[in-house]
Structure formats: structure tokens, C-alpha cells
């Protein structure tokens, strides 16, 4: 029994991703210091989502694994998002 050939990711890919992650972190820190009202929340969460997809796809190898893993992660994220939205709708309209 032989497992699928494992994908070797070059070091530079990781360093590029790290540079991107740090840039995004600093951007979100700076942007949220400027008061933009409700946009602040949206921007901070959008940046966090971009950062986490980088971590998931490159660091956690989802980009190179079978599609099954990505679909399962998406399902879990959608489940959590749905629960949060439904709960907030409940509080908003009760």
C-alpha cells in the first residue's frame, strides 16, 4: 500500500505567506485605530478571514490535499456562521 506522493512545498512559499500574514496583521491594527464605525468590524473580520484562508490553504496543506478536506472545513465554518447569524437574528427581532 503506497500513499499518494507527498507534495513538497518550497521554503520561499512559506516565507511569502508569512510576509503576507504580517502585512495583513499590521494593516488590520492600523485600520481599526481609525474610527470607521461599523466598517471597522467588517474590515477586521474580512482581514481575519483572508489570513485564516492563507493558513488553511498553505500551512495546513488544504490546497494540496484531496478536495474532501476543504469541503469539510467549509461545512464547519458555514455551520458556525449560520448559528451565529440565526442567534443574532433572534436577539435582533425578539
Amino acid at each position: 500500500m503506497e500513499n499518494e506522493k507527498n507534495h513538497i512545498i518550497p521554503y520561499r512559499t512559506f516565507l511569502f505567506v508569512l510576509a503576507g500574514l504580517i502585512t495583513l496583521t499590521l494593516t488590520s491594527a492600523v485600520v481599526t485605530q481609525i474610527s470607521l464605525g461599523t466598517f471597522t468590524v467588517a474590515i477586521a473580520l474580512i482581514i481575519a478571514t483572508i489570513k485564516s484562508s492563507l493558513v488553511l490553504r498553505v500551512f495546513m496543506h488544504l490546497k494540496f490535499e484531496s478536495r474532501m478536506f476543504s469541503l469539510a472545513v467549509i461545512a464547519v465554518v458555514l455551520l458556525i456562521a449560520t448559528v451565529i447569524i440565526i442567534t443574532l437574528l433572534d436577539y435582533l427581532y425578539r
Binding site: 481599526t32 481575519a48 488553511l56
Partner: peptide, 21 residues
């Protein structure tokens, strides 16, 4: 590594929720 990245992933959301927003 996967476990360590997950811990990182959770922090990516804790950071804006507590420190930034």
C-alpha cells in the same frame, strides 16, 4: 503541525475580536 496551525487560526479571530474592534 495541523494542531499548531489551528491554535494559530483561533488566535487570528481572537485578536480582532478582543484587541482591535
Amino acid at each position: 503541525g495541523l494542531y499548531w496551525h489551528l491554535v494559530d487560526l483561533i488566535w487570528i479571530f481572537l485578536y480582532p475580536l478582543f484587541y482591535l474592534i
